[in-house]
Write a protein that binds this DNA or RNA. Structure first.
Length: 138
RNA sequence: CGUGCAAAAUGUUCUAUCGCGUUACACCUGUGUAAUGAGGAAAGUCUGGGCAACACAGAGCAGCAUACUACCUAACGGGUAGGCUUUUAACGUAAAAAUUAAUUGACAGACAGUGCUAAAGAAAAUUAAACUACCUGAGUUUUUUGUAUAAAAAUUUAGGAAAAGGUGAAAAGGUGGUGUAAGAGACCACCGGGUAAAUGGUAACAUUUAUUGCAAGGUAAACCUUAUGCGUUGCAAGGUCAAAUAGGUUGUACCGAGUUUCGGCUCACAAGGCUGCUCGUCUUGAUGUACAAUGGGUAGACUGCAAUAGACUAUGUUAGUGAUAGCAUGGCAAGAUAAAUGAUAGAAUUUGUUUCAUCGAAAGAUGAAAUAAAACAGAACCCGGCUUAUAGUUUUGCAAAAAAA
RNA sequence: GCUGUUGUAGCUCAGGGGUAGAGCACUUCCUUGGUAAGGAAGAGGUCGAGAGUUCAAUUCUCUUCAACAGCU
């Protein structure tokens, strides 16, 4: 049975993690219309935490931003099993930020394909990282 | 009948699957069940208040805001009614006025004072000026006539006057007449304005009468004057709990002079706070010494904060022209915090476009199918307003044109 | 959420009621064997948008749009 829920523990809330996501030279993927970056964290309640952002510069109105964020959240919620079922993740804790780059409204099917591609790339990176004994953080 | 503009009202619905926030309950303590979950503007942050902290909040100056009258309201820069006013239309007329309807107004004061008023124009602000043109007197020249005189023209000069021309946004009441050398409110009639009184109205103001020839434009969204009001900062206010790191921090007493009944009082100095400044007022007494107390505070978390409560709201009724107020009955309805209230699929509803069919002279109407669209916009401490944005539908008003009767 | 500032030529900025300028950049000419520098001339503006006050608005007032900054 797949777990499609998306509780609050799986969202990035701490400001320190957000700074870590954007400041350090982390692993990042660029697949249109998303820019995804990833960081290793510690002492969090969930294995994988997600931050979804839509820039105010591209979308002036709060209605548009909210709608795009909700759509991205739905896409992630329905596809996160691709990442969480990966065995490489079991021993680690990561944070992911998904930024929406495009200036036009979101096309659902295209965005779903892109996000699936991104998740696969991240899973690949995790497996490679697992082969290296020393993790880059700590 | 349609179109456009303005104002007001309304602001699509249902099902399935998978999810999110809050509250309640249950237990296996992180799951389940149930209930519930965004607007008329939630927006802009333009305003008034609640609430909170700063001295339970002082005076003057400065500063800011408001500005016809009466009323409503917790309060307001908001609203209602009225007055005056702008524009348009109708009616009316020779033309106006008056009247009616809609509409406009940051609607106190420009004889308290200071400034500004370009270019153009002769002259641009307190009794202004004279370019062309007008009139009178004097001189010179020319022409006419037989001469003088006289007349006419040109020119110089001394005045008159402000009517005509031209400039300008504005040229010192307007129109018509009398008058005059020419003219002029110099005088007269009507219109407009000022002053006073009476009447009506709570008042703004209106009407009538009398009187005044009527001289000093505009700008106060220039400074300003008058009247009224305003303490400052905002929930990132404020309060509680509290890792790591760094190091201390806080309270009390003593510490200038005089006096003393040893409780204090007065004076001086210094530091700090209270609104930008001044006054006034409050607190403290440097450094240091002694004693006492363990905390203070950042990341973060909780609270403030979401309701059996209120300037709440729906309906009815009473009072009032109305805003609104009273009474009766019913209702209690979001609370997130990198920020919930959704996503996907299907169906219905409304509207547009295209095609087809029927009716019709035509405009068009009805039905079916396909396709597209369904506005503006997302609570963030809470209420009252204002402003701005809004597809489609409905209502009201206005505008212009065409067709038919 | 709250508080403020700024929009003028391609760029950086003046101007604070009387029809808009400076520097750099651009165009043409002169100078040089040629280029640069230098000299002379020229072009380029809805003064963010819409209303209002005024005879007249880039300037004053209101509304609105955009950009930027500060407060944890």
């Amino acid at each position: 049975m797949m777990n499609y829920s998306f509780p609050k523990q799986e969202k990035v809330i701490s400001q320190k993690i957000i700074e870590a996501l954007y400041s350090k030279g982390n692993y990042s993927v660029y697949v249109f219309p998303f820019k995804v970056s990833m960081a290793f964290v510690a002492e969090q309640q969930a294995n994988c935490q997600v931050l979804i952002t839509v820039p105010k510069r591209n979308f002036k109105k709060a209605v548009d931003r909210n709608r795009i964020k909700r759509q991205i959240r739905e896409i992630y919620r329905l596809n996160k099993h691709l990442l969480l079922n990966n065995t490489a993740l079991q021993s680690k804790q990561i944070a992911i930020s998904i930024a929406y780059i495009s200036k036009t409204n979101l096309a659902y099917n295209q965005a779903e394909n892109s996000l699936q591609k991104v998740i696969n790339l991240i899973a690949l990176h995790l497996e490679k990282d697992h082969s290296i004994p020393v993790s880059p953080i700590n």
